[in-house]
């Protein structure tokens, strides 16, 4: 590997870009691919995209021999709106699964470091915090407040992003009302369908920790392609 190529790779990783190192195993020739930065439909680009998407390196059989596609995905991120009881259970689970977690709640009695030690807390309004977070394909967002004033601005922001998972806590009835509000705000049915609601896999969860498990399970299923995005 050329030192200059390694430097470029390290820079891409520091910039949180999704990058693939393609190595021809016969010749040793290498190049970096940024398959999400273009619409290239070649088999190599598609294979690189899938490797990044499923977070799994792959070997591509090219005309010039096998090409190993090693993937470098930026960290997964989880943005939680609502420093509520379920969030307290969800934070350590997500951190354990290697997510960089941010908890957002302008209500300081909820979003306090006493309730949330060892996690990034953001006491700005959620859409303001999201503006800076800039959700990407490696970001999941969950809204947990039940409060339209807090949840809706966050949802409106993330539905314009590439976030791989959007989930909203609330009953079927709450979710139907949310649908009406978002459609009224100009979002399409297709946009709305991206929101997982009621949130979480149906495992009969009752307690905050159980609900956190069902949320984390659903995020994982979507990430790994076992459930619709």
């Amino acid at each position: 590997m050329k030192t200059t190529l390694l430097e470029e790779l390290q820079q891409a990783r520091a910039d949180k870009r999704q990058v693939v190192l393609a190595t021809n195993l016969a010749s040793g020739d290498q190049k970096l691919l940024y398959p999400f930065d273009n619409e290239d439909k070649s088999e190599l680009s598609e294979a690189a995209r899938n490797a990044l998407r499923y977070d799994k390196p792959a070997t591509f059989e090219s005309d010039d021999g096998p090409v190993f596609l090693n993937i470098f995905n930026p960290s997964l991120r989880l943005f939680i709106v609502g420093a509520v009881h379920i969030a307290q259970a969800l934070v350590p689970m997500a951190a354990g699964a290697d997510y960089e977690v941010t908890v957002s709640d302008p209500r300081r009695s909820f979003g306090s470091s006493f309730r949330f030690p060892n996690v990034t807390l953001d006491n700005r309004w959620p859409d303001e915090a999201l503006e800076e977070l800039d959700p990407d394909r490696r970001t999941a967002i969950v809204t947990l407040t039940h409060d339209a004033k807090l949840d809706d601005p966050a949802l409106q922001h993330v539905l314009k992003s590439d976030a791989f998972y959007v989930g909203a806590l609330g009953s079927g009835r709450t979710h139907a009302k949310r649908q009406q509000r978002l459609l009224k705000a100009g979002f399409t049915e297709e946009d709305f369908a991206r929101i997982h609601g009621p949130i979480g896999l149906d495992i009969g969860a009752k307690s905050p920790a159980e609900i956190a498990i069902s949320i984390m399970a659903e995020i994982t299923a979507v990430l790994r392609g076992k459930s619709k995005a």
């Binding site: 390694l6 430097e7 390290q10 520091a14 949180k16 930026p74 960290s75 990034t120 953001d122 006491n123």
Partner: peptide
């Protein structure tokens, strides 16, 4: 109040390789 976390941990293998080379 926000904090930033570096994507590249201290024990990053490629960073160490580059460091040795330099």
């Amino acid at each position: 109040m926000t904090e930033t976390t570096s994507i590249l941990p201290d024990d990053d293998i490629l960073a160490q390789a580059l460091n040795w080379k330099k």
